[in-house]
Each structure stands twice: as C-alpha cells, then as structure tokens.
Deep mutational scan, measured.
Amino acid sequence: EPLWIRPDAPSRCTWQLGRPASESPHHHTAPAKSPKILPDILKKIGDTPMVRINKIGKKFGLKCELLAKCEFFNAGGSVKDRISLRMIEDAERDGTLKPGDTIIEPTSGNTGIGLALAAAVRGYRCIIVMPEKMSSEKVDVLRALGAEIVRTPTNARFDSPESHVGVAWRLKNEIPNSHILDQYRNASNPLAHYDTTADEILQQCDGKLDMLVASVGTGGTITGIARKLKEKCPGCRIIGVDPEGSILAEPEELNQTEQTTYEVEGIGYDFIPTVLDRTVVDKWFKSNDEEAFTFARMLIAQEGLLCGGSAGSTVAVAVKAAQELQEGQRCVVILPDSVRNYMTKFLSDRWMLQKGFLKEEDLTEKKPWWWHLRVQELGLSAPLTVLPTITCGHTIEILREKGFDQAPVVDEAGVILGMVTLGNMLSSLLAGKVQPSDQVGKVIYKQFKQIRLTDTLGRLSHILEMDHFALVVHEQIQYHSTGKSSQRQMVFGVVTAIDLLNFVAAQERDQK
C-alpha cells in the first residue's frame, strides 16, 4: 500500500453525458421521505430548503428570480454533511469501515464536522487534520463531537509532509485500522450531490432553472449537481466560483495573481482535486475576500440567511453572472454553511477592521482624538531585521541585547519573508524542534498583521487588541530589464502597544 495517494490523481470516472444510468458502476440512493420521529440526527441530513432572495437581486438590477439552496440546514450545519454520511455509508457497505475503526480526514473543517457527527452516532474514533487558518468555532464544535484535532501550517503546499493532507496520511500509516475516506478522491463525494442535492433542486424548481452558481473546494458539490442538471435540464448554465489565490478556475489566465492566501474558508485549493470535473462548468468567476464577507453580511442583514463567507462569494458572483438572465428565468445559488463557524471572524466588526474589510468610518461609535491620525505620526525608528541564514542562537542574543521581542526576517534585497519572535524561538528550542545552530528560517511564521503608514491609529489599535505587534510595510514598484514591473513589500518598522501608548501619553502631556 502506498504511503500516500495524491489528492489530485487523474480521475478514473467514466461518467458521460447521455450515458444510461443503468451502466453506472456505483451504488445510487434515492431521496427517502422522513418519518415524523427521526431514529437519529443523521436522518436530518439532506432535504434542505430552497429560499427566495428578495432584496439583493433587485438591489443589483437582476431581472431573474434568485433562489438560495440553504445547505446550513443540514444536521452539522453545512453541505459537507451529505458527503460525510455518504462516504461512511459506502465504506461500511463495501466492508472497508468496521466497528471500532478510526476515521482520519484532512479538511478545512466542515467535512470534519460532518464526519465527527456521523462518527459520534456510529461509534468510530475520528481524527481531523486541518490548517491553522480555520476558525476556532470549527475546532470547538469538533472537540465537542469527540474528534481529535491536529493543526497544520496554512501556507504548507498540499504535497508537503507538513500539509493537512501529508499529516493525515502519516497518521494513517501509524494508526492500525485507520482510514482516510479522502473527500478529494472519493466518488461518494460527487455521488452524494448527484443522487440527492441535484434531485432536490430539480424537484423544488419543478425542473425549471436557467443558471446554477456554486463555490468550489473539493469540487464534489458542483460536479455532482452539474452532471445531473446537464442530464435533466441541459439549458442550465453552470457557474463556478473560485477565490483569488486558488488555481481551480479555467482558463488558467484567471488564476494569475501574486496573491497566495485568502481568508474565506472551505473553497479554493492549490491543486485540482480528483473529484472535480471542470468540463461540466460553463464559466468560472474569481471572487475576493472583501466581496465575500460584504455579501455574507448582506445576506444575514437583508435576507435573514445566517450563512458563512463562501455563501457571500457565491452570491457576489451570482449578481454578476445572472445579469444575462431575463424576467421569468431563474438562478439558484448554493449557500454551503452557517455563520456559526465564523462568529469571531467576519461577523465581528473588530475582525473586519483588522483585516481591512471594514473602515473605521463605517462604525458610528465615538472615537478618541488620536483615532484618525496616521501611523506615520508615530515617528517610528528604523527596524531591526535579520536574514533567514542567521542562526536561532545568534538571533536570540541580538533580540535580548537590543531589547526586542520580535524581528522581521528579510532577504538580501529587503523583501519581507516573515517574522521571528523570542517566545516562538525559545519554545521551539525547548520542544526540540530546532537547535541553536539551525537557521532562523526554520522558525519563520507568517501569521502576523501588516499595516501601512497611511493607515489610521484606530486601525492599529484594533490590531493591537488581539496581537502583540504589527509590521509596518510599504510597497515598492521595481522595474526589470524586460520592461515588466513587480510590486514588493518592504519593512518600514515594527509597532507595539507600548509605542502607541507612549505616543498618546506624550501628545497629551505636551497639550497640557
């Protein structure tokens, strides 16, 4: 057995438009009618409502009807409940999964919650491996369901041993009777949507819809739904939504950006999952974080739909894509998950301010006199920076000697690579993860907040409520011999709460 199987392995699926269902090699399930009293909570997966979006479509000038398939009504709160249950049931049916076995899954959280929910009911041990950027709410729900959680670096490539995929496979090879159901490759993922989600949409719309818009992560949702719609409703256009920084969209030119990270969760990847059939997507749109969270908040405030950030991405694209539809036509959007997962993220004004998705003037509360002053007023001194090749031991000596707790790590040209902190280095040394002679590049981390000289002290204040420091950066445009230009970030300084307090105190003292 291989040590790991690539999540982007070539698909062996034989589905073709027009091929009889009787030739399918898979076990198919028909939607079942729910009894009045459910035998367990797993029976509350599927049969989610279709809700008309009344205000947002009109606000953006849509002539067509805009409908939302509300997947956050599933038992675990997301569309991923469907595939989690289906993968477990299919693994039980073919004898792969037996009582007492362990389920391991690399996930952005929602599939993990679905699997942990099913594992709690069915009696399996469950280990979820997820990147650090995923919300604390997801972690809390997983723990409450009895799952064990392993976190991995957000910026690790999918084929790196440190990625959530790599760590999951390492655990599988170490733990007896453990299984990775593997949402990236498992046919049960798109089949769950082909058999149930798509049929529900067709039934709820009486077979009449002209466009379907869905955000894409593993691709199982859009693949399964689109294949069924292509068979039953061939005139329906399928629109895929991919965040900026991901590479799922086609044509490839759409993916060209210097951005590699994004805040919206559960969609987009740096590889093409095996289950994603991009041939059934008629057109791709890219979405960005700001519009995703703005539209998610709009869905909550104006439509009462308590959905997550990827739902915002989907609707932001839908109001663009559906401009081509006329009166009497219908566009369906998939709202994948609930706001429950993001209470401390985009639902929080403070978080939105820190990330730059909300401006101070958007909030009406009274601010102190210094709130709208610029960061450049602080008069920061030149920063202490270190090269990635310097040793951890030497870096600790320098920081202690100069009285700093942290320093930016830059390359020879001064471009920011990340940050090192005294606390992080000492804990890594004590844990045996690094040696004093190791290069400081081994303990770089990139989960820090950046701020510009033109940003306000109010925004800085919000950042420092949650973080010990902020890195002050400025952009530099560099022209190359080819005539092309590129933008790079340079370090201007490091600012802490002490710097802000000293500035405010000094100004008030001078005024007296």
Rank of each mutant, 00 (worst) to 15 (best):
G393Y: 05
A322L: 05
I396K: 02
T314Q: 11
G432A: 14
D362K: 14
K512W: 04
H474Y: 13
F346W: 02
Q302M: 12
D438W: 15
K345T: 07
K355W: 07
V281K: 02
P251Y: 02
P243T: 14
L254V: 06
T257L: 10
V317A: 02
Q256T: 08
F492I: 14
Q450S: 12
T385M: 15
L373A: 14
P243N: 02
V333W: 02
T421E: 08
S485L: 11
A301P: 04
K283D: 08
V281L: 14
R278A: 02
F357W: 08
K484W: 13
S381L: 13
I398S: 11
G423C: 05
V275A: 09
S486F: 11
G266F: 06
Q302T: 15
E265S: 02
A292H: 02
A322Q: 06
V443H: 02
V420W: 02
V275I: 06
K446S: 12
M466W: 15
S461V: 13
T421K: 14
D337I: 05
N288D: 15
Q489G: 02
K359P: 02
I396M: 15
D455W: 09
A431P: 15
P436T: 15
I238S: 02
S287C: 12
F295Y: 10
K484T: 02
M419D: 12
P383N: 02
G245S: 07
Q259I: 15
G266C: 07
L353S: 08
R350A: 14
F285A: 14
R374Q: 02
K345D: 02
G493I: 11
S313N: 05
Q487C: 11
E244Y: 10
L347C: 11
F503Q: 04
A497T: 14
A407I: 14
K366D: 12
M425H: 02
Q302S: 10
Q435W: 09
E258L: 10
V280A: 12
A431N: 15
E265T: 05
I396A: 02
D499S: 04
Q447G: 06
S381P: 13
I498A: 15
E412V: 11
K402N: 11
K345L: 02
G268V: 02
K449P: 02
S486H: 08
D362G: 11
E412H: 15
A311S: 15
Q487H: 14
W284V: 02
L457E: 02
T456W: 14
G356L: 05
Q450G: 02
F357C: 02
V315Y: 02
I272L: 07
E361A: 06
L417D: 10
G441H: 05
K484D: 02
E258V: 10
Q478E: 08
T364H: 10
D337P: 12
G441A: 10
G309L: 02
H372P: 02
E360S: 13
L453C: 10
M298F: 07
T421V: 11
I390N: 12
D455N: 08
S481A: 14
T421M: 14
L299V: 15
A296Q: 04
D282G: 15
V410D: 10
Q376S: 09
E291R: 13
E327N: 02
T257A: 10
G414N: 02
A292S: 06
D289V: 02
L426P: 02
Q302W: 12
L363I: 10
F295Q: 15
I300N: 02
V495C: 12
V332M: 15
M419P: 11
H462L: 11
F295G: 08
V409C: 15
T456C: 10
Q326Y: 15
L399D: 02
I444W: 12
I463W: 05
I334S: 04
F293M: 02
N255C: 07
L387F: 13
H462A: 14
G418A: 10
H468K: 10
D405N: 02
L501N: 07
I451E: 02
P436A: 10
T421S: 10
Y479R: 15
Q329F: 09
S481Y: 08
D455K: 06
E465I: 02
I444F: 02
T456L: 11
L471D: 02
Q447K: 10
S486W: 09
T482R: 14
Q329N: 07
Q450W: 12
V495M: 14
Y269N: 07
Q354W: 13
E324L: 04
C392G: 05
M352S: 04
V504P: 02
I247C: 02
A497K: 09
V504Y: 11
E397G: 10
E401H: 12
